[in-house]
């Protein structure tokens, strides 16, 4: 079993091309990567909405301990 194209460093180094594992599957990795990036934005936006809804529900925008610093 070998995931990459390099099985020995003893050959001609100049003949070595791509060195990462699973050469030939790059498009799949990129698709997964793009999905991860887009999903991050969606999940983050939802979390941010929840965070601020929660803050508004709990505190109603009232100032909290430490308010003496607020208007610096």
């Amino acid at each position: 079993m070998a995931t990459g194209q390099v099985e020995s460093w003893a050959g001609t180094i100049a003949d070595i091309g791509p060195m990462y594992p699973f050469v030939g599957t790059e498009v799949i990795w990129v698709i997964v990567g793009v999905v991860f990036w887009l999903a991050w934005h969606v999940i983050q936006a939802r979390k941010e909405n929840r965070e601020w809804e929660e803050d508004l529900r709990k505190f109603g925008g009232k100032q909290l301990p430490g308010e003496e610093y607020y208007d610096h």
Binding site: I16, G17, P18, Y20
Partner: peptide
């Protein structure tokens, strides 16, 4: 291109794919 072999670890030897040349690598 993000799926191109040159966007990864590469020693500059002959390309694995057909979209680039040995000169490119």
């Amino acid at each position: 291109e993000p799926w191109n072999e040159l966007m990864g670890t590469h020693m500059g030897g002959p390309p694995a794919g057909t979209d680039i040349t040995a000169e490119d690598t």
